[in-house]
Every structure is written in structure tokens, then in C-alpha cells.
Amino acid sequence: MALSRRGFLRLVAAAGASLGAGGALRRLLGKAVPAASEGQTIPAFAADASRTGQLVAGTPAASVIPPLTVAPAPPESRGRRWVMVIDLARCDGCRKCTDACTAMHFVPFGQEWIKVYANRDNEVAGAYWFPRPCMQCDNPPCVKVCPVGATYKRADGIVIQNQDVCIGCRYCMAACPYSARYFNWVEPPHTPEETARPYSLDWNYPHRKGVAAKCIFCPALLREGKLAACAAACPMGAIYMGDENEDTVTNSQGETVRFSALVRDNGGHRYLEELGTEPRVYYLPPRNRQYPAPPEPAATKEGGR
């Protein structure tokens, strides 16, 4: 299915309309957000169309009701709804995603912004590897409870953590059901590369003592049309990222597929769906695994479920 110019414009218009609806609600809540102006085009995220043929036409993006604290996305991310799909059948637990993330964000020792668990759902089902980034929930428990708005939902779907504002009460950590939040208990050791850059929300470093930190989906890379560090580093192409409005996701192998079809056809789910946190990270089930399963996670019952 080819994406015609008209289809693409329709997609953009739909995205603009949904943003407009969200904007109206936001204005109602007292926070004006400049929406994408009509007729403005957004370059496709999965831009490497030459490799995968054509971009697929997206279904009109669903209008999104923002949670109470929604901030505008930076101009380059406007109209985006970043999303991630992790194919558990491909993850072989090599933890290159964790390493790449740690290297890119200078993540302090003890924190794994994307953490690979050896998970197991029941006694019969086999164990499988389970990478857990921040789920960037659309109904984020951490954002709800933050007393000062140091963590907030952005219109492009990312839950941002602002270390400049965080008061270190750690309520977000207590509220997060995914254990995706970390805290700088001591002053983290610094490297010259880390401190060379002034603190920015896009990179979430340099780190400092007494504030919370977490995965932020590498917004600066996404805006440049690049995959986040973890997705780019995955040798198995298990991590897809893309724009939900564009309905396209791409992995490190250059495979660009329709997001909705990928999740629908493979029975994708979101972790702890029953809690209603509406994560923006989808998982494809660990069927037909092509890699050695993790050792039986004996420690699994120790802490969690």
C-alpha cells in the first residue's frame, strides 16, 4: 500500500485535529498549547523509505485526551506520538540496550533505565527475557503524584523528568508499578564528557544528588529521525520505535512496519495492562524463540511476583 501525497496530508490533518482537540481541553485546564498549524507537514519518522519500500498510510490518529499535566512538545516533535514495540521473541538477553543507554546518558552505577529481566509468567510457561524501559504511560501514576510537576507528560507522549525541579520526595518511585524510576542517593561520579554538556531535558544529564531519574525515550535522537540508544543498539532488532500518528515503527535492522498491524497481528500487549496506566510500550509475546531461554529465574519469587 503506497502512501499517496493526499493520504499523507490526511494523516497530518488528522494529527493536527487531534492535537487541536487536546489543545481545547488543555486551554480549558488553563494551559495553552500551540497546536500544529493547519497544512503544516511533518517529515516521516521512518524516513528510510528506500529500504523498506513505501511508508504505509496511517489510520487517522485517535484523538488523545491528555492527562492533567501536559506540556507542549518541542516544535520538532509536534504532532508526534512516540511509541515503542518490544518483540520478546527476539530478545536474547544480551543487555546491549542497557549498555548503550547507560553509555549515552552516563547513567550512574546501580541504575538501569532499560532493565532486562529474566521473567516467567507461571510454572509451565518458559522463562523469557523482558526489557523494561520507562513505559511512558498515557495515564502515568508518577506524573499524577508529583507535587511540583518535576515529571510531566508531554504532548508527544514522553514522560519527562526534570532534575532541575525535582525535590527528591520519591513519591514517583513509590507510585510507579514498573520499578522504572531511580534515585541518585549520593552524588554520582562524573566524567568530563558528562559534565561538558549543560543539563537538558533531552539528555537528562549531568546527574546530580537527591533527584529522581529515568528513561526518557531519547527525545533528541527521535527528533533527528534516529532510534533511541537502546533500540539502535539491539543486535536482534527486538526494539521498534516510531510515531503512533504515522502508524510506523522501525527497528535497528531497518525493518519498518505498520505499528497497528504489528501489534494486532502478533497479539501484542502492554505490561500490567490491567492497571490502566496505558503504557506507550507494547510487547509482542515470546513465541518461537530463536535463542537460549534465560536460566530459570529462581530469584523471581523472592521479590516480586
Binding site: L68, T69, V165, R170
Partner: peptide, 18 residues
């Protein structure tokens, strides 16, 4: 609190939703 010196923020821009 990890950052007690930022306590004033709660009064300056505290969120009533919390």
C-alpha cells in the same frame, strides 16, 4: 527529601492533583 532546599517549590508551583 533528597532536595530539602527546594521545599519552596511546593508553595511556588505545587500541584493540587498530588
Amino acid at each position: 527529601m533528597g532536595r530539602p532546599e527546594r521545599l519552596w517549590e511546593i508553595f511556588a508551583f505545587g500541584r493540587v492533583q498530588s
